[in-house]
Amino acid sequence: MKIENIREVKTRFSRYVKELPKSGSVLITKNGRPCAALVPVTEDTDLEALALSQNKSFWKIIDDAIERGRKKGFVSLASLLDAAPRLPADFPKRIRDRRPERVKPL
């Protein structure tokens, strides 16, 4: 991750945006303190997850739910995963074998 002053980014904004896929994220500082970030967006970027990761009210809901679970004795996700039945090693292959042929567009 690059760290750049806001003046530098403002002066060469187009260049920074163009180089994002290659260089990665840029942390922008103002008076030496972080104030913003430029993040590359690709086909693999989950924009909803990116937006939620910055939403304080979303994280408050998550934290409150976890706390309620602790107080009421809910089962942890880790214990559910430990108790889950294991899929056979060839499971993905069996699904792939049953998938119908793709239909070619007209």
Score class of each variant (00 low, 15 high):
Leu81Gly: 00
Ile66Lys: 15
Phe13Arg: 02
Phe74Thr: 12
Leu27Pro: 00
Pro21Ile: 03
Leu52Arg: 15
Cys35Ala: 05
Lys22Ala: 09
Lys56Ile: 08
Leu20Glu: 01
Ser14Phe: 02
Leu38Phe: 01
Arg96Met: 14
Glu43Leu: 09
Gly32Glu: 07
Ala84Ser: 04
Pro85Ser: 14
Arg12Lys: 07
Arg102Met: 10
Glu19Ser: 08
Ile6Asp: 02
Pro88Met: 07
Val75Asn: 04
Arg102Gln: 11
Lys72Ser: 15
Leu77Ile: 03
Lys60Val: 10
Ala84Gln: 01
Lys71Pro: 00
Glu8Val: 03
Leu20Lys: 03
Glu48His: 10
Ala51Glu: 14
Ile3Thr: 14
Ser53Arg: 15
Lys56Cys: 00
Arg68Leu: 11
Ala36Asn: 02
Ile28Pro: 03
Asp90Asn: 15
Val9Ser: 00
Pro100Ile: 03
Ala89Glu: 14
Lys2Phe: 06
Glu8Gln: 09
Leu20Trp: 02
Ser76Gly: 13
Phe58Ser: 05
Asp82His: 04
Ser79Asn: 10
Lys56Leu: 12
Arg70Thr: 07
Asp97Leu: 12
Ile28Ser: 02
Ser14Lys: 07
Ala65Ile: 06
Arg33Phe: 09
Ser79Trp: 06
Ser76Ala: 12
Val39Phe: 12
Glu101Arg: 15
Ser79Gln: 15
Ile95Gly: 06
Leu38Ile: 02
Trp59Met: 14
Met1Ala: 11
Leu47Tyr: 00
Val9Glu: 00
Gly69Ile: 11
Leu27Ser: 08
Arg102Leu: 12
Leu38Arg: 01
Gly69Gln: 14
Ile62Ser: 02
Thr45Trp: 10
Ala36Met: 05
Pro105Gly: 08
Gly32Phe: 09
Thr45Lys: 11
Ser79Ala: 13
Ala51Trp: 12
Leu81Asp: 04
Leu77Gly: 11
Thr45Ile: 09
Arg98Phe: 09
Ala78Trp: 07
Arg86Thr: 11
Arg96Pro: 00
Lys2Val: 03
Leu77Met: 15
Arg86Ser: 11
Val103Ser: 11
Ser25Asp: 09
Pro21Met: 02
Ala49Phe: 13
Arg94Ala: 08
Leu27Met: 12
Ile66Thr: 12
Glu43Ser: 13
Arg33Asp: 02
Lys30Pro: 00
Leu27Tyr: 05
Ser76Leu: 09
Gly73Phe: 07
Glu48Ser: 10
Gly69Val: 07
Pro88Thr: 15
Lys2Tyr: 04
Glu4Tyr: 03
Lys93Thr: 14
Ser57Trp: 03
Gly73Trp: 07
Lys71Asn: 10
Ser23Pro: 00
Lys72Ile: 08
Ser57Thr: 14
Arg99Trp: 06
Asn31Ile: 07
Val75Lys: 06
Ile66His: 10
Ser57Tyr: 09
Arg70Phe: 10
Val17Met: 07
Tyr16Cys: 00
Ala84Asn: 01
Trp59Ser: 13
Glu43Gln: 05
Val17Tyr: 01
Leu87Asn: 08
Ala78Asp: 11
Lys56Tyr: 04
Tyr16Thr: 00
Val17Ser: 04
Pro34Tyr: 06
Pro88His: 08
Asp64Thr: 08
Ala36Tyr: 03
Pro105Ser: 14
Thr29Pro: 03
Ala37Val: 14
Val17Arg: 06
Asp82Gln: 06
Val17Trp: 01
Arg102His: 03
